[in-house]
Amino acid sequence: MDIDQKLQAGAEIVKEWVISTSNPEVNRVDLVVAPENLKKAVAAMLDSQWGYLSAITGLDHPEYLTDETGVKKVDPDRGNLELLYHFSGGAAVLTLRVTLPYSEAVIDSICDIDMAAQLYEREAAELFGIEFRGAPSTDHLVLPDDWPVGVYPLRKAFTGLKKES
């Protein structure tokens, strides 16, 4: 099976949930799905044995404020987070993309259907502040135990911890 056919076969598996499609590279297809359908789409991908979940990438798309001096600054309260679920099958990479607003950064955990996702989810939870509904553990995995609550280091608004007085 060549790469085009493989990508088409993958897109076919999840087509009922797909909102939009793009091909960023010759061996890749990106499929945007709604957050409430993500788990169903992931389950269908895993059941079909098209490939395996390679990684979950988090992205932050903040909105920007312009202050009185004309300097553009990140607005810490408004913006969107994006999760990219990358599946690899041979040379082909299929990505399911979901967008979550800061105000409702919650999505279903997929740990019960793919155990391997746990570490990826916990990384995204700690570093981007995304809540994974039904996740088996919400303990700290990568950040120190005394890390302040509500500080998410991979968001663009994070530039460092304040010095303690």
Binding site: L127, V142, L154, G160, L161, K163, E164
Partner: peptide, 15 residues
């Protein structure tokens, strides 16, 4: 595994 956070532990928690 461990890559992302730049922290000095202890009382002086500055980046």
């Amino acid at each position: 595994n461990d890559r992302m956070i730049l922290v000095k532990r202890g009382n002086d928690q500055t980046v």
